[in-house]
Amino acid sequence: MARRIVVVVKHVPNIHSARAFADGRTVRGAEDGSLNELDEHPVEEAVRILEGLDEAERAESEIVVITVGPAEAVDALRRAFQLGATTAIHVNDEALAGSDYAGTAKALAAAVRKVAADGPIDLVLAGMAALDGLGSVVPALLAAELGLPQLTNAGKLELDGATARVERVVDGATEVLEAPLPAVVSVNDHINRPRFPNFKLIMAARTKPVTTWTLADLGVDAAEVGEAGARTRVLSAEPRPERAPVEIHVDAGAGGEALVEFLVRRGLV
């Protein structure tokens, strides 16, 4: 059967640029370095699900990526295009600035509902966490907002007709969970290895249209999101103070003893 899959993604500040150039990857352009790395996995998973369909089904299928964020967040959608997304939606509204987890989930949920109003969706996929905040709670909040079953932190996902089954390793246990579709599924980085986009996709991603929705388009009250709707307030945010310069001991036979001497000096043993 044809599948309509929504993938919610996040644009994150480029705090891991070193990783972007590792693993023999070609250097990414400035326009595509900022999709949350863990969000490549749900896009890849959606692409694989479509690849498992026959050609006619695939022609009817769609991968819709949605992001909520300021103007530059469109870069995350461009990257998702490179990885194989077919449609992209950017929820951008000044009133969203300062959203907490709940506000972000509300805006995402409204966008997913609007996509679903055009035609039924089978699955909402998400990454397991954003590498900037690592809260990991937006997928669970999104499921609650949408009133859909949640299957989170999946290391394996199987779709069998109208049922999704996931396997996950959390908190020292392996769990298998099942739910009827449509469901919200977040996936971790063990589920697949995202492919390198080919040149054709990279070129095509530059010019594919991105739909932009405002809160008004979504029918979301601006007072419920952003700073206005936030249930938490940041008092202060500061770069971590620099550590004292590292003490380096070059081992010439007493490295282990020097290590212990350091621990003693710091009162750690």
Partner: peptide
């Protein structure tokens, strides 16, 4: 905070 440049196979057991 503290670095030992050396072979862990000897440094760790000594520590």
């Amino acid at each position: 905070d503290f670095a030992v440049v050396g072979d862990l196979a000897t440094v760790l057991p000594q520590a």
